[in-house]
Design a protein around this nucleic acid. Structure first.
Ligand SMILES: Nc1ncnc2c1ncn2[C@@H]1O[C@H](COP(=O)(O)OP(=O)(O)OP(=O)(O)O)[C@@H](O)[C@H]1O
Length: 843
DNA sequence: ATCCTTCCGATTTTT
DNA sequence: TCGGAAGGAT
């Protein structure tokens, strides 16, 4: 048992007593670990998995291939894999049934799918193709829809169908069920019809959408429990975000053993829009007898200040059951809250603050220590621009980016159709790509005939090409179809020859003259670059990079005498990973700032986190209407805030361009109660530590908290000499100058507005030119504008002078008596003793 | 069939 | 602001 001993020595000892208690809890009893953010849930779950497969003195180990570890996202799966691997080594980890719900289900379906009526070459239909199908269905039903006076948008239909599927609701059941929005029976019926035909179309295409993967697997496990009866333990991460189908899957997978361990946190439930049901936590108590609940209350991630602010946000939820959560970490730097005029300054500030932190703490911090969290992807634009301007490397997390590119989708569609000729959405996608003169009219005639005669679309095309079709196609279109059919035949031959995916792709590009096509289409360089990347990805897939693969052990018993023992072809493996993979370009090796949505950040952590656009309309999102939706938005902010370990910044703007128009933004309702009235919030004017958050409204000191940051990061604090040098260099840096400018303009604008009775602000262009025209001379002014306390640079510089400021000291004097002039004009004429100079002079 | 312009409408979150 | 849809010219 040396393995188990090793685990005990190296790993179990790194857990706190209550964590260890949970990790080695009796495997025969179902276990729920409920705990707040940063309490080490993932650490405990991974350790438990390791402990289960390594065994213990008085307990035999379970086989890794009989141990299921499911996560919600690919990223979580990867994280899980690497953590477990650290405990039990890669070869044992590879044997685990570890992956997302979807990946796990696909593996079973590839092997046993025929037991539930799935061809083994079924294609996974991504949302794009789903939309394509639904558009076709809606078009076909256009008359009916017009009659009932209902309009249905494809995207709406897709989400509604997806939600129905998450509830295990078939088209028929959906029709019978009450409409979600009561009173609109026509629409509900119409939707049910779309759902029904969508299903027919999928089946005809031998395709499964994402939800089908789970539904079919559930049916498989239900009808043929033998396929998963060997499973000895099921572990589920982020359980609060499971929906009905996922819960059902968990039940089926554990039907034989009854052994499950889950971790979750009701306060971090942020997927109810996807039909996640927190109530599954309670349901589980009923469904699994003898279940044990263990609570963990110590947060190991964040500083006291961060945890305090986060808890004060989430505790505003009156319906919430309060749970204990404390940290042994130091209080750390206060949470920074800043409001800017527009997105331009907000994003600029974040970029500059990243630079300031890095410069003052050099060489302790790296770009990868920073993360910018967004409510939705579209907000990334501004940040990307700002980071690029400052030449700060960054990466976007989540957002299907790579496989969403048109050129990638086109090529992958060719492969899909080669693997499964019946896959209609793919076929329709590529039929006229590159352009072959096959237009809308021809396409709808062909697919009309196909559905009327109940034959696959590609058969119709073949008939047309063989001139045996009743459909008359002429001229360019006919020639185009001929070309397409011969292209596909050529490629199919290649598939027979057993080419590698990489070679096959090269063939596709060659035979279709895709490169020429891209050259004509424009933006060639970057699109071709993407194609190259796809080729690389294909090559990687083919290599023995099996570690990311979920591997199902060889069957011992045949459940169906008919079934052939067929290993998935490389092509199929490739198509699977391209359909289920979300995050491609994860060069963890590179040092980059992360930009991510709050959802994508779930389960992750960074030393320094900026949350952007903490405004009403964003947090909560303006489409949240019900109290439940608002509560979820609050939890989302909570999740975002609790990603931070050492420093947390909340940013907001006063005006934001949304839907093409400027909107006046208010600070998020989740935060205003925590801000004193004197600062524009609705909180107490004289806040105390217990009832308010001690925000920093300026730029947080860095030096004072370096040791806390260092301790959290387990890095060493730079020496005093280095720090001194950093301060000097920072002072002369462009970062410092620019931060000063930003603050100067902000104050100027603030004051100007208060003087002008809040009538308006300098126009954007005026503002920008003001920014630019503010030369270094102008930077040395502004003491009577209340700039002193908002100055970023002097804050740290003053320390060495012995000056100390309260962190929450403010700029209350902004409206001191001043001439009625444009503030920027005064800026350039004013000539008061500058802070900056003073700071410079001190050495 | 394709290319071009014009107009409209609307912005979540993920597998 | 921008991307998609719809409509018109070639
Ligand atoms: N016993 C411990 N001692 C020291 N550090 C720990 C301990 N347990 C967990 N941590 C650290 O705390 C951080 C949070 O752990 P983990 O990600 O497992 O928490 P979590 O509960 O899954 O968080 P969340 O719910 O926010 O995703 C990690 O950096 C982890 O290494």
């Amino acid at each position: 048992m040396s393995n188990a001993d090793t685990l005990r020595r190296l790993a179990l000892d790194s857990l706190s007593p209550s964590q260890r208690h949970a990790a080695v809890w009796d495997p025969e009893r179902p276990l729920q670990i409920l705990a707040g953010p940063g309490s080490g849930k993932t650490r405990v779950l991974t350790m438990r998995a390791a402990w289960l497969v390594l065994g213990d003195a008085d307990r035999r180990p379970i086989k890794p291939e009989n141990c299921v570890v499911v996560t919600f996202t690919n990223r979580a799966a990867r994280e899980m894999r690497s953590r477990i691997s650290a405990y039990i080594g890669p070869s044992m980890t590879d044997r685990l049934l570890l992956g997302t719900f979807h990946a796990l289900c696909v593996k079973f379906l590839r092997r046993y799918g025929r037991l539930v009526g799935l061809a083994n070459n079924f294609t996974i239909c991504d949302s794009d193709d789903s939309i394509r199908i639904i558009k076709g269905v809606i078009e076909q039903q256009a008359d009916m829809l017009k009659e009932s006076g209902v309009t249905i948008k494809a995207e709406e239909a897709r989400t509604e169908i997806s939600r129905a599927k998450a509830r295990l609701q078939t088209a028929e059941a959906f029709r019978k069920a009450c409409p979600n929005a009561p009173g609109n029976m026509d629409r509900h019926t119409a939707m049910a019809n779309v759902y029904k035909d969508y299903e027919l179309y999928l089946r005809g295409s031998k395709a499964c959408d994402f939800d089908d993967l789970l539904l079919y697997a559930e049916r498989l496990f239900c009808l043929h429990p033998g396929v998963c009866s060997k499973i000895e333990h099921v572990l589920v991460d982020e359980f609060q975000d499971t929906n009905a189908i996922q819960y059902a899957l968990m039940q089926r997978l554990s039907a034989a053993s009854g052994r499950v361990s889950i971790v979750g946190d009701p306060d971090q439930s942020i997927y109810s829009w996807r039909n996640a049901e927190v109530s599954n936590l309670e349901k589980m108590v009923h469904d699994f007898s003898g279940i044990k609940r263990i609570y963990l209350e110590e947060n190991f991630r964040s500083t006291g200040a961060i945890l305090d602010a986060s808890l004060k946000v989430v505790q505003q939820d009156r319906m919430r059951i309060n749970k204990g959560l404390y940290t042994a970490q130091a209080e750390g730097a206060p949470v920074t809250f800043r409001t800017f005029d527009t997105e331009l300054e907000e994003t600029e500030y974040v970029a500059l603050e990243i630079e300031r932190q890095m410069q003052l703490a050099r060489p302790m911090l790296r770009y990868a220590d920073f993360c910018i969290l967004l409510r939705f992807n579209a907000l990334s634009r501004g940040f990307e621009a700002a980071l690029r301007r400052r030449r700060i490397p960054y990466r976007m997390l989540g957002g299907q980016q790579f496989f969403d590119r048109v050129e990638i989708k086109d090529l992958v569609a060719y492969l899909r159709v080669l693997d499964n000729p019946a896959y209609a959405p793919g076929l329709l996608r590529i039929l006229n790509v590159p352009k072959r003169g096959i237009g809308k009219a021809t396409i709808s005639a062909v697919s009309g005939l196909a559905s009327a005669q109940r034959i696959p679309i590609y058969s119709v095309l073949e008939q047309i090409s063989a001139r045996t079709s009743e459909l008359s196609v002429h001229g360019r279109a006919l020639y185009g179809i001929d070309t397409f059919v011969s292209v596909m035949n050529k490629l199919r031959e290649r598939v027979q020859q057993g080419l590698s995916v990489n070679e096959l792709l090269t063939c596709v590009i060659e035979v279709t003259e895709y490169k020429t096509y891209l050259e004509r289409e424009g933006d060639f360089a970057s699109r071709w670059e993407n194609v190259r990347e796809l080729l690389t990805f294909a090559a990687l897939c083919a290599g023995d990079d099996e570690r990311e693969e979920l591997y199902l052990p060889p069957k011992r018993t045949k459940l169906d005498p008919e079934e052939q023992e067929e290993e998935p072809t490389p092509l199929r493996t490739f198509l699977e990973s391209s359909a289920l993979a979300t995050d491609r370009t994860d060069d963890d090796t590179n040092d980059k700032v992360t930009i991510a949505t709050c959802h994508a950040a779930k389960g992750l952590e960074w030393p320094i986190v900026f949350v952007a656009a903490v405004e009403d309309g964003t947090f909560p999102f303006y489409r949240s209407t019900t109290p439940e939706m608002i509560a979820e938005e609050r939890r989302l902010l909570y999740v975002a805030m609790t990603r931070a370990a050492s420093n947390l910044y909340l940013c907001s703007t006063k005006r934001r361009m949304m839907a093409g128009e400027w909107r006046n933004q208010k600070v998020s309702m989740f935060v205003t109660p925590l801000i004193p009235c004197s600062r524009g919030g609705t909180g107490l004017s004289a806040p105390t530590k217990t009832d308010a958050v001690m925000w920093c409204f300026t730029s947080p000191l860095i030096q004072d908290f370096l040791h806390t940051t260092a301790r959290i990061l387990q890095r060493s604090v730079p020496s005093e000499e280095v720090l001194q040098q950093n301060r000097i260099e920072y002072k002369f840096s462009d970062t410092c100058t620019s931060l000063d400018k930003l603050d100067a303009c902000r104050n100027a604008a603030l004051q100007w507005r208060s003087e002008m009775g809040n009538v308006g602000l300098p126009s954007k262009s005026g503002f920008l030119s003001a920014l630019n025209s503010l030369g270094s001379a102008a930077l040395q002014h502004g003491s009577n504008l209340g700039m002193r306390s908002t100055h970023a640079a002097p804050a740290d510089l003053q320390q060495s002078h012995g000056h100390r400021r309260s962190m929450s000291s403010t700029t209350q004097n902004a409206s001191s008596a001043a001439p009625q002039a444009h503030p920027l004009a005064r800026f350039t004429s004013n000539n008061t003793a500058p802070q900056r100079k003073r700071a410079l002079g001190m050495h």
